[in-house]
């Protein structure tokens, strides 16, 4: 009797059983910490008197206080604007170069393709902090070989760690490190285009340039969308490059990017509650931006498919 009853239940429960490990891991290591961070963001520390001795520090409910403080904080807004300017340089340049390199590697006349592919990809394998340190040394006029050459040639020596050029300097690190990865993604999807498509195009008399513009690029559009999506997220999360360059110059404040501000508040000031609120806002903004972009991209693709 009991076995007969249990069997249909067991079959029904099987998917849930399979889901269980992933669900537990998700809940423990993803949902729970996020939930805790959100909870922290609604709390604050209240000190009484001089704050010395035990019991002088209590955690109390803050409501939306941390959120209003974060949203009206000029530092956080300034950081967001700086990152926006930085992203406007990084994303187009990096993806443009990645697409160009991928198309060149995919063309029939290419030589030393495996070596070139590896050479372009290699910087991606270098950790961001190391890359930033390396470039930081190259940007410092007193120790950089570039400045030595410029000096010897009597050419002007721009200060790359100040004002506008600072954005170029930081973008350069990201472009140098990220182009290879994006190129591989685009290149892989180029390789998966069936050869018949090219044959048909050639029979119709299309030049290599026309093939690239009219066939290859439209056909790799999904991977372009994907790389764009990744790049936006990476840009919003920029942290290690400016943090590494910071000690080298007076021009990078401790709150240069929004994430640096979060880090500073959490670990510099020790105010985890304000930091949690800012982190939540950044996460929401990232979610809105990236999924907004994905939806827009999807809609366009569907429209094109319908045509």
């Amino acid at each position: 009797m009991t076995t007969a009853r249990r069997r249909p239940y067991g079959v029904k429960g099987a998917p849930y059983g399979f889901l269980l490990p992933a669900t537990i891991l998700f809940a423990l290591f993803f949902a729970l910490p996020i939930g805790y961070a959100v909870w922290l963001s609604f709390r604050k520390v209240k000190v009484s008197g001089l704050g010395l001795g035990s019991g002088a520090r209590r955690e109390v409910w803050a409501g939306l206080e941390n959120y209003t403080a974060a949203l009206t904080d000029s530092e956080l807004l300034g950081g967001a604007l700086r990152v926006l300017a930085y992203g406007c340089i990084v994303v187009p340049v990096m993806l443009g170069l990645a697409l160009l390199f991928a198309l060149m590697l995919d063309s029939e006349k290419v030589r030393f393709a495996p070596f070139t592919r590896l050479a372009i990809f290699l910087p991606y394998a270098i950790p961001g902090v190391v890359a930033a340190l390396l470039w930081g040394f190259l940007y410092l006029p007193d120790v950089s070989p570039f400045y030595f050459v410029l000096d010897k040639l009597g050419l002007p020596q721009p200060d790359l760690l100040d004002g506008g050029p600072l954005y170029l300097a930081l973008s350069n690190i990201a472009v140098w490190g990220g182009t290879g990865f994006n190129m591989i993604v685009i290149y892989t999807s180029l390789r998966s285009i069936p050869a018949e498509v090219y044959e048909a195009a050639k029979l119709d008399g299309a030049t290599p340039l026309q093939i690239a513009l009219r066939i290859k690029i439209p056909m790799v559009a999904p991977s372009l969308v994907l790389t764009f999506f990744f790049s936006i997220i990476a840009t919003l999360q920029v942290f290690s490059e400016p943090t590494t360059l910071k000690p080298l110059t007076n021009s990078v404040p401790t709150t240069w990017s929004p994430l640096m501000k979060v880090y500073q508040d959490a670990f510099g000031k020790g105010d985890i509650h304000a930091a949690a609120a800012q982190a939540t806002i950044i996460a929401l903004a990232t979610l809105l931006l990236s999924f907004g972009f994905l939806r827009a991209a999807n809609r366009r693709q569907k429209q094109e498919a319908a045509r």
Partner: peptide
């Protein structure tokens, strides 16, 4: 005092731009 870290961070940012 109890928030030397805050003063030190403020120093870096404020004096960083003043020195620059």
């Amino acid at each position: 005092g109890p928030n030397v870290n805050v003063a030190y961070t403020a120093f870096k940012d404020a004096f960083g731009s003043a020195a620059k």
